[in-house]
Design a protein around this nucleic acid. Structure first.
Lengths: 257, 257
DNA sequence: CGTCGTTTTGATCAAATTCAAAAAGTGTGG
DNA sequence: CCACACTTTTTGAATTTGATCAAAACGACG
């Protein structure tokens, strides 16, 4: 395919300056890992339509700790919106190794897959409450031509983003970095994004060391030891096994690469 | 819909300023990883609408080896459909560590993200040809109410599926298992799914050991040694560094867990 | 108080990385 | 076709990280 004409419009190379952007790139790079840039997040405002759908036609429910929302290979026919508690999605290899794919908390949507059957199961880390709608209903809404399918796309894209960050975490990071990134992300998630510099805010980790290990691709002992190290170096302070404070966020942020 | 753009475009490649840093640049990601169940795959027939869109309004283009389709943080404004060659998507941490997110081959769609800016860059493992359409055009199609948004959802869901498999690979598998799974997936992708038991078919790996290492979260040395081991145990046969045959697929399949 | 599940700590061990160098493969120009 | 430069791949030895095995400490709860 010999082409003589080069249209500079489409394909950019490293040599071509990026379009001017309000976002400081260096900054974006620093926090690239766990938090999408503010800009990115803004783009992803979850369609209010989804929220309303759950509020209006969702059926409330609860799961006890370790209870199952659905199992691996179950048909995909419900969509859940978590209202309280924490859900984990995970897969168990045939020799017993477990990989946790993600943790879902209030406001998160669980159960969204395009295929017919679930690849991962969904279980409650702690007792959780939620609302369910049937996928059939969601599909019906799509048929009506609203922008429901766009909302589904958005949600799936967000999941994809999380997965990609997770890949980065598992592929190229040390145990310290994994735990550090995880804690920073959890803190942001739990105490909120606005208290970035309120180093003092203590919060509770909802999941066990084993859950963290299975999310981070480490053993429970390594996770525990890493906590001890991070405490020894003053990066975090443990008030109890599950309650901690981030004392040095900049160190944690650096771990983000 | 008459095509507005018909001029083939070429991305200059030889001139791409790849810093000759000590950092090794490895290549990209694999589509069709880890075999979804046949059922799963069947559900995911890619909307023919997308294919036709590229055929009709896509602008052809090429990238040379190591050339860039887009960089990290570039605006998301094109969608690419690969026609030949291999593309990798990857991210480089600030200390030079690289993670390859996926490898894309003929028929795959590259560049799909919901956010405004790319999280990963896309580079050519080998000279590649493709067709581009502007995201703006795609969005316009969505507005018209067709099922384009459903197709986008489908594609994103497929990406998500692959990412999740990748997580499983990186989180809980040994070097041998990683390489084994990878080779099986590549063989399925390259020689086709129908020759599952044609153990003898030799095929070429399009990417370097470094690329594989960066995809698998290993070092290049470990990948190389693992090849040697797999050959020694008769699981694979290496005709040259890049050409191989899978001699014992059942062993490889077991590595999948 | 005793039991059970979780977390921490300790002592090895193994897998993968790192550092270093040789070998094999590619491309160029004479 | 060969020599030379350069890149990719393989191999070796030493080192490091995290895993494994084992047991103690801690906490919640009947």
């Amino acid at each position: 395919m010999s082409s003589i004409l080069q249209t500079p419009q489409t394909v950019t190379t490293a040599a071509i300056p990026l379009p001017a952007s309000p976002v400081n790139l260096a900054d974006a790079r620093i926090r690239g890992q766990w938090r999408p840039s503010a800009e990115q997040i803004a783009d992803w405002s979850l369609d209010a339509r989804i929220v309303h759908m759950f509020a209006e036609i969702g059926t409330p429910g609860t799961v006890a700790r370790n209870g199952e929302l659905y199992a691996e290979d179950d048909a995909v026919d419900n969509l859940y919106r978590i209202e309280s508690g924490v859900i984990r999605t995970c897969k168990i290899l045939n020799d017993g190794r477990r990989q946790i794919d993600g943790f879902y908390m209030a406001g998160d949507i669980v159960g969204l897959e395009f295929g017919r059957r679930h690849l991962y199961c969904a279980e409650a880390v702690s007792r959780a409450t939620f609302r369910v709608v049937r996928m059939r209903t969601v599909h019906a809404q799509i048929e009506t031509g609203g922008d429901m399918s766009c909302a589904l796309w958005e949600m799936t894209a967000r999941e994809l983003y999380r997965s990609q960050q997770h890949i980065l975490l598992l592929g190229r990071r040390s145990a310290q970095e994994r735990v550090g990134c995880f804690l920073l992300a959890m803190a942001n998630r739990i105490v909120g994004k606005d208290v970035l510099d309120t180093a003092g805010a203590a919060f509770d980790l909802p999941m066990s060391r084993q859950d963290m290990a299975d999310y981070l691709g480490l053993t429970i002992e390594t996770v525990s030891r890493t906590f001890t190290q991070l405490e020894a170096t003053g990066v975090i302070a443990l008030e109890s096994a599950r309650t901690l404070r981030l004392c040095n966020r900049s160190v944690l942020r650096e771990m983000n690469g």
